[in-house]
């Protein structure tokens, strides 16, 4: 079988490729958002697409997040597959009503008569020295909302494949793009279209001592921590990239923890009711008897995302992740209060 030609792309270029392929192959796909047309989006994810596909399919909209999402839901009702962009995920709060009341509920409200086949793309996360409201990670809101799927890629190749899957998905998908790694590295992306199934995590590194779970921009930091732990401590880390926040791949998580008996979960968002809390709950339900230590989490704190002079202290980094893993491994199960 001939290997498809590969191109070294950044995540921005890979996302652009996925959008371009969708517009090309499916006439019902259309794009809407602020500054996505002539300007190609503030991060240039939609660069050149309006020029190529016209203003009827790549629409610059007024500056109104609720209007963008509501109009996209309406377009989906009319039979299109819109991909809406909200410039920064912090601004999705102004569209919260449309996401919760309409995007997430319309299929159920109308008993499958009007499925909402749409994707809401939005860059999330910290580390880019931006002003307030430009760095939040609030994926937990959407994971808490029935009817939605929530997907977060971690590399150019899986970004392209997951966005293709999200656009083809029969249900509404929140697609969070880790803007910290939009251009951080390049990866081989094949010419031939490919998709990844939504709802499946990926084992990035196989290991035997501890399961380390991360997603989005934090995956790279977790990977660095895993490399350090291997090199410095000889620890064998099994690294899982969650990819799909909702539905969550409970099986992959539980099977891994049953093998390793230890687990650390990493994310940028605030800790309370965060994604790690859900992962830990599932480990309790499906792998409790295999645990050798309490599951640790390395997350953002329950404070507002800091102004950017302080953001690197707030965000999980390889050292803090490695420290949590070491503590988990050093946990002595005999030290229990009597």
């Amino acid at each position: 079988m001939a290997e498809s030609t590969m191109h070294q792309l950044t995540m921005v270029e890979a996302l652009n490729l996925a959008l371009c392929e969708a517009l090309e192959h499916d006439p019902t796909v259309c794009l809407l958002g602020q500054d996505i047309g002539v300007n190609g989006g503030v991060f240039r994810v939609t660069k050149g697409l309006q020029e190529r596909f016209g203003r009827g399919r790549v629409m610059d909209t007024p500056l109104a997040e609720c209007g963008i999402v509501g109009a996209a839901v309406g377009m989906a009702i009319s039979g299109l597959r819109p991909v809406a962009e909200i410039q920064f995920s912090g601004f999705t709060m102004q569209a919260f009503d449309q996401i919760e009341q309409n995007m997430a509920r319309f299929r159920n409200r109308t008993r499958h008569r009007y499925p909402i086949r749409m994707v809401l793309r939005t860059p999330y996360g910290g580390g880019i020295r931006a002003v307030e409201h430009h760095s939040e990670s609030r994926e937990a809101y959407w994971a808490h909302t029935p009817g939605l799927k929530v997907v977060i890629p971690s590399s150019p190749r899986n970004a392209r494949a997951l966005l293709a899957a999200a656009i083809a998905d029969p249900d509404p998908v929140i697609f969070y793009e880790p803007k910290l790694i939009y251009r951080a590295f390049r990866e081989d992306v094949p010419d031939a279209p490919e998709t990844l199934p939504i709802g499946r995590a990926r084992i990035v590194l196989e290991g035997t001592d501890v399961t380390l779970i991360a997603y989005g921009a934090m995956l790279r930091r977790a990977r660095e921590a895993a490399d350090d732990l291997r090199d410095l401590d000889g620890t064998s880390v099994e690294l899982i990239d969650l990819l799909s926040i909702s539905p969550m791949d409970t099986q992959t998580i539980a099977e891994s923890v049953r093998r390793t008996g230890r687990c650390v979960v990493v994310h940028e968002g605030p800790r309370t009711c965060g994604i790690a809390a859900e992962v830990i709950a599932r480990i309790n339900e499906h792998a409790f008897e295999h645990l050798l230590a309490p599951v640790r989490r390395v997350t953002g704190f329950d404070v507002h995302f800091p102004y950017f002079q302080t953001e690197e202290h707030y965000l999980p980094d390889p050292d803090s992740i490695a420290r949590a893993v070491r503590e988990t491994i050093a946990w002595d199960p005999t030290h229990r209060p009597r």
Binding site: C30, G56, R57, C66, G67, V69, G70, A71, A72, V73, G74, M75, A76, I77, S78, G79, L80, D97, Q98, Q101, N102
Partner: peptide, 21 residues
């Protein structure tokens, strides 16, 4: 729509969708 006014963006979106099609 139960949430007051939340259906108007949908109506506009349906109308935009009809035009596009």
């Amino acid at each position: 729509s139960i949430v007051i006014g939340s259906h108007l963006p949908l109506a506009t979106g349906v109308a935009m969708g009809l035009t596009i099609q």
